[in-house]
Deep mutational scan, measured.
Amino acid sequence: MTSCHIAEEHIQKVAIFGGTHGNELTGVFLVKHWLENGAEIQRTGLEVKPFITNPRAVKKCTRYIDCDLNRIFDLENLGKKMSEDLPYEVRRAQEINHLFGPKDSEDSYDIIFDLHNTTSNMGCTLILEDSRNNFLIQMFHYIKTSLAPLPCYVYLIEHPSLKYATTRSIAKYPVGIEVGPQPQGVLRADILDQMRKMIKHALDFIHHFNEGKEFPPCAIEVYKIIEKVDYPRDENGEIAAIIHPNLQDQDWKPLHPGDPMFLTLDGKTIPLGGDCTVYPVFVNEAAYYEKKEAFAKTTKLTLNAKSIRCCLH
């Protein structure tokens, strides 16, 4: 018999989150649709729960009410004593943790798909938090293969000092899905179709896995975050240069030392320094102006996964 890495157990509980950011409308629209008619997301033997994560922000069509829901799922915020004085999103995070967690427990949901849009030209993107997770690498390989020839990129946010504390991190297997470009507060049919297909293929993978299909060893190309880059700023902290036209919409493309990065209003080009080629992502993302992030630098690498098969009882 072929030796293989056996994944822990079959997958039982899956959640699909929309509206973690209330103005990213593809996930909101799909989740609302699936709450009314969820036939397309159901798979035999699998509990799939669509869920609106930040209903107040969705109602106002804004990213958040008090603070970013997708950055506060750490033990400090989840452990705060519940009171009306807490920011709305912290209270909501505790409610979500109660419903789908608790985080880092045996009772937490197996998989959470968190649906997002970006204003950046990132196409279909899967966000991975753990480079050693054979199950998710296999799932992402399946999704990428199923979507081809449509490109699907994998963004690895594993980093020693950049801690995200994402909404989906309460699950055993957290999956971020990011599709763009799409303006905030807008629905685009092409973007919706791409996100819908990503979810379909992900659920198909889980179904095949649960039925005992063995997935042979595989490898995927990923883009691992190195650092986030702020806009150049003046002495008052105001933005002093904008994304250069040569960099705009060039997510995932190589940016070499000396290539144009920013452009000042008086026409001066600010190039990339250093001696390493990087791959920019979230270029000129609207939501990241407040976070002082013009783009993120990534490096390209390959992740390998062992063969996996479900432990059938």
Rank of each mutant, 00 (worst) to 15 (best):
S131T: 15
L115G: 01
E227D: 10
D107T: 12
E9D: 13
D230N: 12
T167S: 12
L30F: 01
W252T: 10
H207I: 08
N37L: 09
E221T: 07
V90P: 10
L78A: 14
E293V: 14
P245Q: 05
K163N: 10
K224R: 09
V175G: 00
G79A: 12
D193N: 13
N134C: 08
S120L: 01
N304W: 10
N23Y: 04
F113A: 01
L78I: 08
Q184K: 11
F215L: 05
R309C: 15
T302W: 07
Q182T: 12
D74G: 07
Q12R: 15
I220A: 02
E40P: 03
E95P: 05
Y155I: 08
E47R: 09
I157N: 11
M139F: 01
A294T: 01
Y88F: 07
D259C: 06
R309L: 05
G18C: 02
I226H: 15
H141F: 04
L136K: 01
V90F: 15
K81I: 13
K228A: 10
F73G: 10
I177Q: 00
H33S: 14
I225M: 07
D234H: 09
L263A: 08
Q194D: 07
V229T: 08
V48E: 01
L301S: 10
R43I: 04
V58E: 06
I143E: 01
K228Y: 15
M198F: 03
R71T: 08
Q42G: 12
F51A: 08
Y173H: 12
K291N: 14
D234G: 12
C218W: 00
V278F: 11
P280H: 02
R309N: 08
E227H: 06
W34M: 01
P149H: 04
Q94I: 12
W34Q: 02
F140A: 09
Q182G: 01
F51R: 04
E36I: 09
T53R: 05
P55G: 07
T166C: 07
S3A: 12
K103G: 12
I270C: 05
G22E: 12
T119G: 00
N134P: 14
N134S: 13
Q184F: 13
R71E: 09
I16Q: 02
E285G: 09
L247K: 02
R71M: 13
C218I: 08
K163S: 15
K292G: 10
C61T: 12
P87K: 12
